[in-house]
Simulated assay, not measured.
Amino acid sequence: MIDVENCINLELRKANRVLSQLYDGYLQECGLKTSQFSILRAVRFLKQTTNSELQEVLILDQTTLSRALKPLLREGLIQACPGVDKRQKMLSLTNKGRAIYKEALLQWEKAQAYVSKNLGEELKENLLKVSRSVVELKA
């Protein structure tokens, strides 16, 4: 492989694309992309949330989140109900969304196991540590 440039951003983006392709390959059986699974996962853990809370948790801008939410809402995996504030919508998983999430979680676990096995425990832990450190730069 040609080393184009010693650029942290470029190298992380390339690694992210490879990981996304791997996870997408496993999740395609459920009809989801990694980005959609991440949203379902966040909504499941938060139980009920808003767009702005999801943006913060997933570190996404409004446009990217809205674009990713549309198919999940359209397919009936997530429902949007009026919040206390009329401008705010509360998001939660539907029964169908919980079922798809449960199915996708099995595929995600397979992807996790594949990546963990091939990276090895030490490199996996280092990668997680580096990723968390990079996220902390967002101030």
Rank of each mutant, 00 (worst) to 15 (best):
S116M: 10
E5V: 00
N16P: 00
A113R: 15
L60R: 09
V134W: 04
Q28L: 12
S52M: 15
G83S: 04
I78G: 01
T49E: 05
V4D: 12
E109I: 01
A80T: 07
M90R: 04
L12N: 10
V130N: 02
L123P: 02
R132G: 08
N126E: 14
C30I: 08
V4Y: 10
L119C: 03
S116A: 12
T49F: 02
L60K: 03
L58G: 09
Q88D: 11
L137P: 02
Q79F: 01
I78C: 03
E53R: 10
D85Q: 06
P82H: 08
V135A: 02
K33M: 11
D3E: 11
K47P: 03
N9D: 15
L127T: 14
T50M: 05
Q107G: 06
I78L: 06
F45A: 15
S52G: 09
V84P: 12
K129N: 14
R98D: 14
L127P: 01
R132S: 13
L19M: 06
C81L: 11
P82C: 09
R44H: 14
E75S: 11
V134H: 04
L40S: 03
I100C: 02
K102L: 14
K117E: 00
T63H: 02
L32K: 05
E103G: 04
E103Q: 09
D24P: 08
N95S: 13
N16M: 11
T50L: 09
L73G: 11
T34K: 02
A139K: 15
T34G: 01
V57E: 11
R74V: 03
C30L: 01
P71E: 06
A99S: 13
Q28A: 15
Q112T: 06
L12S: 12
A68P: 00
E109K: 05
V135M: 01
Q112Y: 10
Q55G: 08
S52A: 15
G31F: 03
L137W: 09
I39Q: 06
L77D: 06
C81F: 06
I100Q: 02
E122L: 07
E53C: 10
L46M: 10
L77P: 02
K102P: 07
I2W: 04
Q21V: 15
E53I: 09
E109N: 11
E53G: 01
P71Q: 08
Y114N: 08
K14N: 04
L32E: 07
E56I: 07
Q36L: 04
G83E: 05
D61Q: 08
T34Q: 00
V57R: 06
A139C: 10
Q88T: 11
V130D: 05
S66H: 03
E5F: 00
L58F: 09
V84C: 11
G76M: 05
K96P: 03
S35I: 15
G31V: 02
Q48C: 07
E125W: 11
A111W: 00
K70M: 12
P82T: 06
G31L: 05
L46V: 04
K96M: 07
F45N: 15
Q55N: 12
R13F: 14
R13V: 13
I78V: 06
C30H: 03
A80Y: 05
I8Q: 12
L46R: 05
K102C: 13
A113F: 13
K96N: 03
L123Y: 08
L22H: 04
K117W: 03
V43G: 00
V130T: 14
L10W: 09
A139N: 13
S52N: 13
L137M: 14
E103T: 11
L73K: 13
S92Y: 01
G97T: 04
E29K: 05
S92F: 01
